[in-house]
């Protein structure tokens, strides 16, 4: 049996609900965007249902400690197709066993979720580290990112608490939505980059007059802090993989 869902968390949790409703035996969960029909396996399309999803989530909260609830959510945010099936199987495994079953690192789904969550948490941490704001002429601190996983929901609080006295925008170019903090709350926003679709960075003319100076000072500092006699390119790349360089002010030539 194959369950097909729409890729939403609601859909995934609904699938778990439907499985317990019907108990169809071994079932795989697939997301509709990449699903290829198979000749000999029956498929069922899952209709996302908030009420059913809420019930499943409540149930999981009873069975899972806080850290495993977060592991579950983080794995979902990885957006990896295989992760959805592991989440589905994991939920079934948890409901069919006593509380505490998540500690069974011998179980395939437990270890898979632990791995997905680790990747997502690492990406989240990297965004907290590598995001560089640019101050615009109207006092807004702006940045755009395209993280490997959908981490905006995870970093929102960190930036809200830290930069409570400045307005900021963090925009996810890949997923086409962003976060805007207006000194009170964080809200999701979408920006239409119709004019400058190729270069989403705001042009220099729109920047705060001192933005260029501080960027320059930071680049200077980055160079000065390096000890040439200890050069270790391998370690450097391990910590700052090349795909993140585009975010980093200190890694820009001009």
């Amino acid at each position: 049996m194959i369950y097909i869902f729409d890729g939403s968390l609601t859909g995934l949790l609904t699938a778990v609900f439907e499985w317990f409703e019907r108990k169809p035996g071994p079932t795989t969960l697939k997301v509709n965007t990449i699903f290829q029909p198979e000749a000999f396996t029956e498929t069922v399309e899952i209709m996302s249902n908030q009420e059913k999803a809420d019930r499943v989530w409540k149930g999981l909260q009873k069975k899972l400690k806080k850290d495993w609830q977060r592991t579950f959510y983080c794995s979902y945010l990885s957006e990896i197709p295989e992760a959805y099936d592991h989440l589905f199987q994991f939920a079934i495994y948890i409901f069919e066993n006593e509380p505490g079953a998540a500690a069974n690192y011998g179980n395939n789904h437990v270890i898979a979720l632990a791995k997905y969550a680790k990747s997502v948490e690492r990406e989240k941490h990297r965004m907290e580290a590598f995001i560089r704001f640019q101050k615009t002429g109207d006092g807004m601190f702006y940045t755009s990112i395209d993280p490997d996983f959908n981490v905006l929901p995870l970093i929102s609080n960190h930036f809200k608490n830290r930069y409570a006295d400045q307005q900021w925008i963090i925009y996810d170019l890949k997923r086409k939505y962003g976060l805007h903090y207006d000194l009170n709350t964080v809200e999701e926003v979408t920006i239409n980059f119709s004019e400058s679709a190729t270069n989403p960075n705001p042009p220099l003319a729109l920047m705060d007059e001192k933005e260029a100076l501080y960027a320059l000072l930071w680049k200077d500092y980055f160079k000065s802090a390096n000890i040439v006699a200890r050069k270790n390119t391998k370690l450097h790349l391990q910590h700052v993989p090349r795909r993140y360089w585009k975010y980093l002010t200190e890694k820009q030539l001009a």
Partner: peptide, 27 residues
């Protein structure tokens, strides 16, 4: 330290390395 005065800055208990110099040390 927590940002409880609507100021700026909020500690991250495990710290954050914002970049790494070419010698591989954290900044």
């Amino acid at each position: 330290r927590k940002n409880d005065n609507k100021g700026i800055g909020d500690s991250h208990s495990s710290g954050i390395c914002h970049t790494y110099t070419e010698d591989g040390r954290c900044v």
